[in-house]
């Protein structure tokens, strides 16, 4: 038993913190958030140059083949400063390609993802909403290596600025909702694709993407994408939990500091028990997120059977406290 981050992870985290302190001050987070696209190509290039976009990609495909826990230590640091970037989408794309694509497709796509030569966005959710395989109803018709598809995807992160879209479509009907789902890849600028940014209060730019007879390339075996998609989602939501862990811990640290320095009625507000109660609630939330997330990262790295359960639990805890 050893619950500490290892040497590599501590080094990754410390380098990440140093980079983020220099490159992502609070003012730039706000500026990027309020910009037209919510995306900074300059920051993304720097992140890619650090190699973070290749961490989830095995060495044989041009990445660095890091563990999920390694990645988690970086996402935790990013969360501490609310770093705005499409890294999570790019990592999800890597996990999807690894989980679904043929060997040839892996050899073609993974180096591109690792080096961030192209940006990938992932479109799964639909207007009917929902998380299971059954919620994916947008139809695609298979035509050789391609699919022609029409329909709408919602809440697609970074679709406005992405180069490629990975889209999950229903190309058949099986005995269970998990059957008949196909992953496809299409250039964002291809014919029949319209992207509109959702308006509202989101942590990252999210878009509605409509497809009208758009033609896309099949990734992997048609109709059999779901198990790989589900595994990729499990791995990626834990990284999102790690990001939220960083944010929660940073908010807690700020609250503790503020409660020591903000004076009211002649004393620091931290001496008031009702203020302490709020801080202790945040402390419990932060530690609950930390340990459910770390354990899930470890279980997924170990390939444990209950890894997906741990991943969903970490995400539930990180989202709701």
């Amino acid at each position: 038993m050893d619950l500490a981050l290892n040497e590599t992870q501590l080094m990754l985290q410390s380098m990440a913190r140093e980079f983020l302190a220099n490159e992502v001050p609070k003012t730039s987070v706000r500026a990027i958030d309020e910009s037209a696209t919510g995306f900074s190509a300059e920051l993304w290039r720097k992140i890619a140059d650090l190699g973070w976009s290749g961490m989830a990609v095995p060495e044989e495909y041009g990445g660095t083949g890091n563990s999920l826990t390694d990645l988690g230590s970086v996402f935790e640091a990013m969360g501490e400063v609310a770093c705005p970037s499409p890294l999570l989408a790019q990592v999800l794309a890597a996990h999807l390609v690894l989980g679904v694509a043929t060997l040839d497709q892996r050899a073609t796509l993974l180096p591109v993802i690792a080096m961030a030569e192209r940006l990938f966005a992932v479109a799964i959710t639909e207007p009917e909403y929902g998380w299971g395989a059954g919620a994916v109803q947008m139809r695609g018709v298979i035509d050789g290596d391609q699919v022609t598809m029409s329909g709408t995807k919602m809440f697609v992160p970074y679709a406005e600025v992405t180069d490629d879209l990975l889209v999950l479509v229903r190309t058949g009907d099986g005995a269970t909702p998990e059957q008949g789902l196909t992953l496809v890849k299409v250039e964002r600028d291809a014919a029949g694709i319209d992207v509109r940014r959702h308006q509202g209060w989101f942590g990252e730019p999210v878009c509605q993407v409509t497809f009208a007879d758009a033609r896309a390339d099949v990734i992997g075996v048609p109709g059999e994408a779901w198990p790989g998609v589900e595994a990729a989602l499990d791995k990626t939501v834990v990284l999102l939990s790690a990001f939220m862990l960083g944010g929660t811990q940073a908010a807690l640290d700020m609250s503790v500091e503020y409660s020591k320095t903000r004076m009211a009625f002649g004393q620091p507000i931290g001496t008031f028990q009702r203020v302490q109660d709020l801080i202790i609630k945040a402390l419990n939330d932060a530690d609950a997120i930390r340990w459910t997330t770390y354990e899930a990262l470890w279980k997924l790295d170990e390939g444990r059977e209950d890894g997906p359960l741990a991943a969903s639990m970490a995400k539930a805890v990180a989202s709701e406290g």
Partner: peptide, 13 residues
């Protein structure tokens, strides 16, 4: 327990 936690976080009197 909350009093103890607050003390040990350094936010108590």
């Amino acid at each position: 327990m909350r009093l103890i936690i607050a003390r040990r976080l350094g936010i108590s009197r």
